[in-house]
Design a protein around this nucleic acid. Structure first.
Length: 471
RNA sequence: GGCCCCGUCGUCUAGCGGUUAGGAUCCAUGGUUUUCAUCCAUGUUACAGGAGUUCAAUUCUCCUCGGGGUCACCA
């Protein structure tokens, strides 16, 4: 069951196999990214499988949410999406095979009996496990019990998982295994069984997943071996923990990947952030998407869990915004109802602002703060800037503006220089009051830039307004 | 509790027997700037602890401690 890539080697086929119980979160996205990258760096395939065997807990919306997030980030799965809910016939066939071969059997123990067994075991401080009472049952089955199907698991010996991240891990069969259920009383197959069947049938030969699956792996190996399937290579990626060092949960801020879009993060920053969480390539911090594909190797995945912390995400995001062409920024801004298409000074505006924001959302906010005239003035700023002969200076600048036709920042700046020279004052004497007049507060880009963006008429209007409001 | 995994600056990490233990982020300070930010420079901070092995351990082994995961007719 191998596919071959163009070089004639066995093609690397990875997969992401979420169960659609909610949106895609950071942890899932990272394993998906790792799987995607590893497949692509080998000219292989990255497949998507939706694990929706539990009808009660799954929703179509969740599947769509996952696809939506993939789409935003530019991760595209190869081929058709596999839905486990549509593969009953396949699972039934393999279960029958195991039954016929005597590798699995029907167990007529009721749920009540199972619970009872478990309670006894717990009371005796024994490991809770199925006791194998129907393993070699030959008699007449009890009436009124729909049987489950259990697989005959080895009762002794060692199961070895050769993990690409953690190394060789061995489990003792008697410590962890019992004849676990592969099909429920209603006939539906269970997780550890379908995972093994599907991974094999889909040709997946490299499984990259969270290390919370590590303890499932021996069970899946039991299934592979019973079915005579070749076992894939495993890479168990350590968890991402929250600031408290616990497993990431919905309470830890915005877990839905799409929430990052709303907060103004770019796909490139998020991906770069995640690829460096638990993986590294020397000291390199910045990775373009194609570099990730080129350089990613699961052997460089870290063995220990990492703590999720957005400081670095913010830094990466500002880095990518800073280096993004204005045209792309313009498109992202559309999400925030900011249409710059026809603005003649949009280049100046964007160049000035993209250096000073951490998110696209912040960029949107700061654009609004410039484009929309202030309605109030920060008290502290007024106190600081409007002292002395500030009004006189502003009037002098107004006079300069009236007689000039400035367009570019340097032209507005030149007029400021004139006032400074003529009145023999420091630059701050005109800068500060002007800034407060234009924006209503301190901070922000260069004043000449602001004036160039809003234009002469609006600049004069704001200055007049500020003078009347503050005298 | 059983089993399994993990343990380098606050955080993300480099290191693969001999290093002044490196980078990034954060924070602090200074410089640049009309403001704020950017940018540049500088700085504080780490090998969990204890035994071994070795001429030499952050690196190898064991123990302790600490953290995490997992033990379903969920996935």
């Amino acid at each position: 069951m191998h596919l071959y890539n163009l070089k004639g080697f066995t093609m690397v086929v990875t997969r992401f196999a979420p169960s659609p119980t909610g949106y895609l979160h950071i942890g899932g996205l990272r394993t998906a990214l790792f799987s995607y990258l590893w497949a692509k760096s080998n000219g292989g395939k990255f497949l998507l499988r939706i694990e929706d065997t539990d009808k009660a807990r799954n929703s179509k919306e969740a599947t769509e949410a996952i696809l939506n997030a993939f789409n935003w980030l530019g991760l595209e799965a190869d081929g058709e999406i596999t839905y486990q809910s549509q593969r009953d016939a396949i699972y039934t066939k393999y279960i029958k095979q195991l039954l016929d071969e005597g590798k699995a059997y029907r167990c007529y123990m009721s749920k009540e009996e199972l619970t009872e067994l478990r309670e006894t075991q717990m009371a005796n401080k024994e490991r809770t496990m199925y006791d194998g009472r129907y393993r070699d049952f030959k008699g007449t089955p009890p009436q009124g019990v729909e049987p489950v199907i259990r697989i005959k698991a080895p009762q002794s010996g060692e199961i070895v998982v050769n993990d690409g991240v953690k190394g060789k891990i061995s489990f003792q069969a008697q410590d962890i295994l019992d004849d676990f259920i592969i099909a429920r009383a209603d006939g539906t197959p269970t997780y550890n069984f379908v995972v093994a069947v599907d991974d094999y049938l889909m040709g997946i030969n490299e499984v990259i997943r969270g290390d919370d699956h590590l303890s499932n792996t021996p069970k899946q190996i039991v299934v592979y071996e019973a079915l005579g399937f070749s076992v894939p290579a495993f890479y168990h990626v350590p968890m991402i923990h929250n600031a408290q060092g616990k497993k990431l949960s919905k309470r830890d801020g915005a877990t839905d990947v799409m929430a990052y879009k709303e907060m103004g993060y770019t796909p490139q920053a998020l991906l770069n952030f995640l690829v460096r969480l638990g993986w590294s390539h020397g000291d390199q911090e910045i990775f373009s998407f194609s570099e990730m594909i080129e350089l990613f190797d699961p052997k460089d995945i870290n063995k220990s869990a990492s703590i999720y912390n957005t400081e670095k995400l913010d830094w990466l995001n500002s880095h990518y915004i800073k280096n993004m062409p204005n045209k792309e920024l313009e498109e992202l801004l559309n999400e925030y109802n900011i249409i710059l298409a026809s603005h003649d000074k949009k280049e100046i505006l964007l160049d000035a602002l993209k250096e000073r924001v951490k998110t696209v959302k912040e960029l949107a906010v700061s654009i609004k703060e410039i484009v929309v005239a202030p309605t109030t003035y920060d008290e502290k700023a007024i106190k600081k800037a409007f002292k002395g002969n500030a009004i006189e200076i502003l009037n002098a600048y107004q006079a300069k503006l009236t007689d000039a036709q400035p367009h570019l920042p340097n032209e507005y700046h030149a007029l400021m220089e004139e006032v400074v020279t003529e009145m023999e004052i420091g630059f701050g004497k005109i800068g500060m009051p002007l800034r407060v007049a234009l924006l209503g507060k301190m901070g922000g880009p260069n004043i000449d830039t602001i004036m160039a963006v809003i234009g002469k008429k609006e600049s004069m209007h704001r200055i007049t307004q500020a003078i009347t409001a503050n005298t």
